[in-house]
Computed example of a mutant assay.
Amino acid sequence: MPTKSPLSIAFAVNAEGWPDGLEAVAERAIREALKQSEAPVTGVAEVSVVLTDDAEQRELNSQWRGIDKSTNVLSFPQIEPLGPVEGLVGDITLALGTVQNEANDMGITLEAHFTHLVVHGFLHLLGYDHIEDEDAEEMEGLETEILASLGIADPYADD
């Protein structure tokens, strides 16, 4: 009898234009980030990933961060920072136009940039941040390791 995964991932597509197949990409990225972060999964847990457009993302960014513009990824954690992973872990939202434009500007595929942003957003759900330089180095280092294991080049190599 198959065992239930301790982490389920729910997807919602709130905007047209997102390519097919990104749900599997996001799931792989989240599972690898969870594995490499070594966050303790202490019970059944759920993450939601919402694929939206710039208008909805702008609304969310304005409402929750007080910044009246779209952004590539937002994370809404529901667990204690760097604590046990169980219950509703949180939500990750991504804005199609912004993600596409950034990928084009960087000369990388939408899938590669999307993967990076999902990993980045999920690490925020776990409690990682990049406000202080030391924390940014830790988070970016972990992102780079996770992405390398997924076959994605270091997004911070040119910084």
Rank of each mutant, 00 (worst) to 15 (best):
E138V: 11
A153P: 00
E145K: 05
V25C: 10
L94I: 15
D68M: 00
E138C: 08
Y156C: 09
I9S: 07
E132R: 12
A95S: 15
F114N: 08
Y128T: 00
H116D: 02
S5N: 14
E46G: 01
I79M: 04
E23V: 12
N61E: 01
H113I: 03
A33C: 04
P77Y: 01
L110R: 00
V85R: 10
L94G: 12
H113Q: 09
G87Y: 05
V50E: 12
G97R: 06
L34N: 13
L125Q: 09
E32D: 04
F11P: 06
H113K: 08
L150I: 14
Q36E: 12
G107W: 04
R65I: 03
F11R: 03
P84H: 09
T98R: 08
E143Q: 07
I67L: 00
Q63M: 06
R58K: 13
D135F: 05
R31N: 13
A103F: 08
A24H: 13
A157T: 01
N104S: 08
N101K: 15
P2D: 07
A148H: 01
I108T: 14
I152T: 04
D154K: 05
D20L: 00
A26M: 08
E27R: 14
L110T: 01
H130M: 15
A103V: 07
E111K: 12
P6K: 05
T109I: 06
D20G: 03
K69Q: 05
R31F: 12
Q57A: 07
G83E: 06
I30T: 02
G141D: 09
L96Q: 02
D159I: 11
G97L: 02
A26V: 10
L74S: 14
G21Q: 10
P19E: 07
L94M: 15
V50C: 09
N61Q: 03
P6F: 01
D105Y: 07
H124P: 12
A26C: 03
P19C: 04
E137K: 12
G87F: 06
S70G: 14
Q57L: 04
E143I: 02
G127F: 05
H124Y: 14
Q78E: 13
Q57S: 03
A29W: 06
A10Y: 04
G97V: 00
P84V: 09
G90T: 10
P19G: 01
L125N: 14
I146M: 08
R28D: 06
Q36P: 05
G141Y: 10
S37D: 13
T93W: 14
M139V: 06
Q63F: 06
N72A: 11
A10P: 02
V89G: 02
A112I: 00
R65K: 04
A24K: 15
V13K: 11
T42N: 01
E38K: 11
L82V: 05
P77V: 07
D129Y: 00
I67N: 03
I9H: 13
F11K: 03
G97A: 07
P6Q: 00
A24W: 11
E132Y: 04
Y128V: 04
T93P: 08
L82H: 01
G151M: 12
P81I: 09
A26F: 11
A39K: 06
M139S: 05
Q78W: 10
L126D: 00
P84C: 12
V119F: 00
G121V: 02
L142G: 07
I9F: 11
A12M: 15
H113Y: 14
V49Y: 14
F114I: 10
I131A: 06
D129K: 02
E134S: 12
A136D: 09
V99L: 14
S37G: 14
S5Q: 11
